[in-house]
Design a protein around this nucleic acid. Structure first.
Lengths: 350, 350
DNA sequence: TTGTACGCGTTATCAC
DNA sequence: GTGATAACGCGTACAA
């Protein structure tokens, strides 16, 4: 059956609608309109404080009237600085990363920066390719939802000479700026909570490398401080969906042996684990307690509600944007290394 | 308590790691290395067929040796073409849009295009601002997860003279290329399913404009063909989370009057509705049937599983990428207007 | 405070 | 098939 056409509503006469000339106006035309030289127009936009009040107003009005926007390529070529900010996420589908990008965009877009987004898919090879492309793209700044592990990439990023913000972890030696949190602390917080609640046979479900490994480390160490050894560890590859959490719990249970509680390195895994546990007739938390990380949208909605460790991802992105903005404005931010607090959100699953 | 440092593992010696010079080499240096003029280097990279075999090999070897990558800003300034592809999504947090972007990236990144992502937040004002910025950014192509409604923006996009793909609807008059599906058909499919199942007092929950209105139209028309009038319509503003679905169902129930089934314009709403219904002690589907759209990750995992209308968003993005690639390679794609099939996925909620 | 002259790195155009 | 020249649109450096 052929598709029915959608009669999409066409709207016209929007207040802010552009009346765009076929060709974008150039600085020269605006200058003529305002009766000044091109460089004065440039200054009105970049260094308005250097112009007299009268000139500035005259020029800005001409800019408004003509709908002028400077050509970012010409600007980048001449000044060596572009308005492109590159953001790299491990997985564009992650809700947490999405929130961080929204926070970043909220800070940077009003300043006239454009956001370029790349997905590294947790792959070194992709990370290498992207860092390489940065050299010729010459973005104004770079943000990663994560930290760079490859030494060569760290070096390459330093040599770019542009502001770099890493996030989502709290390493001793960030490349440049950092808005992170301690994954080791997150793991410890998880262990402490479960132990306080009386659980003793603890397990961990998460990726084997990167932040998963750090959360496991904190989890294991804190358990050790109470004289406990982890009952079991289930490692997973890339986590894309709730289904991966169901699979992971199946693996955990298939391995046999008694288990009280599972700390899942993210809420997608934890949500899947809760759903799978209940589907198998296990009571959560009395048969198996489940603790997540990240406070996803769905975490509070399932039954029982997922106890999880939360971090404000939107705020993380916003702060990263603040740091970049300051640097790009030529200031040195006061707190170039920040760690965000983690919060335990207690719901029914533990 | 101060944050504990994460001892992030540092990796070096990665096979593909870049050995980058501090300053990017320019075309002039490569030309000297190869003993040719700069324009010959340019041709070796852009129109290799115009050079003799020997010259081409000589130049490409020099490119390799120096690690040269052309400056995209200079290239864009001079040629009017960039390697940036702009993609606009209504909401970056949407799983469906994320999948489409992944599909698009999978097609375009291997070809050397960079993806720039903007979020319009369902706002005309933002759409206007973004379209305006495109004029000077001169992207190679543009993709929207949606169709452009503002006549002025449609005109502006046409005048850019670059390939444009619209998606997610099936209008009669796309700006340029289209990989869409019929939202009217989706609504009709929903009504047909619910009516076949025996439900008679049908309601709709969704946004009042755009695709929501189209799905409502199809839903209402198909109900009308069975002599049914919709029992109620609940309109919502921007949908960000499952919680919005819970709120919407609360509104629906508060308005009183008997209701058999609700068609929610997306799965976030539908998932929230199922959860809220059950929280209120309603049996799904016997007290209230709920049908969604989009087949989100969580849709199959809640209890009862959500019956929903699915469309392959990753495939949509991939096809959009294919169309753009063809156009950018100077070919005219055979199927510049495509509609994707919709599938009813029957689970327990209806 | 404003203007003039020039160059950023590349490619279009035309000549050989 | 290859090269010389100029130009893309802007902002730096310096002059007035």
């Amino acid at each position: 059956m052929p598709a029915t056409y959608d009669n999409v509503v066409r709207v016209s006469g929007h207040a802010e609608a552009p009346r765009l000339a076929a060709k974008a106006p150039r600085i020269e035309m605006v200058a003529q309109l305002a009766g000044v030289s091109p460089i004065t127009v440039s200054r009105a936009l970049r260094q308005p404080e250097k112009l007299s009040e009268a000139t500035r107003r005259k020029v800005l009005e001409a800019v408004e009237r003509s709908g002028y926007e400077s050509n970012p390529h010409a600007r980048a070529l001449r000044s060596g600085r572009s308005t492109l900010v590159a953001a790299f996420v491990s997985n564009i589908l992650s809700q947490q990363f999405g929130l961080a990008i929204q926070g970043l965009a909220a800070e940077l877009e009003p300043e006239g920066y454009e956001l370029m987004i790349g997905q590294t898919s947790y792959s070194y090879a992709k990370e290498v390719a992207m860092v390489r492309s940065l050299r010729s793209l010459r973005p104004a700044a770079v943000m990663f939802t994560g930290v760079i592990e490859l030494e060569e990439n760290r070096q390459a990023l330093r040599e770019l000479g542009i502001p770099v913000v890493e996030t989502w972890a709290f390493p001793r030696d960030p490349i440049d700026m950092l808005v992170g949190f301690s994954n080791v602390d997150a793991g410890a917080m998880a262990a402490r909570h479960l132990i306080e609640k009386g659980y003793r046979r603890l397990t961990f479900i998460g990726r084997s490398g990167g932040r998963g490994a750090l959360r496991l480390q904190g989890f294991r160490e804190e358990a050790g401080r109470s004289g406990l050894t982890l009952a079991r560890i289930v490692t997973v590859d890339e986590v894309q969906s709730i289904a991966d959490g169901r699979t992971a719990l199946t693996t955990l249970l298939a391995e046999g042996g008694p288990v009280d509680a599972a700390f899942c390195a993210n809420d997608l895994l934890a949500t899947g684990a809760v759903i799978e546990a209940r589907a198998r007739g296990l009571a959560v938390p009395s048969d198996l307690a489940i603790l997540g990380f990240g406070d996803n949208d769905a975490a509070g909605e399932i039954a029982p509600g997922l106890t999880t460790i939360s971090m404000d991802a939107h705020d993380l992105g916003r702060r990263a944007g603040e740091l970049l903005r300051a640097r790009l404005a030529g200031q040195e931010p006061q707190h170039a290394i920040q760690s965000l607090p983690l919060h335990l959100i207690t719901r029914g699953s533990t």
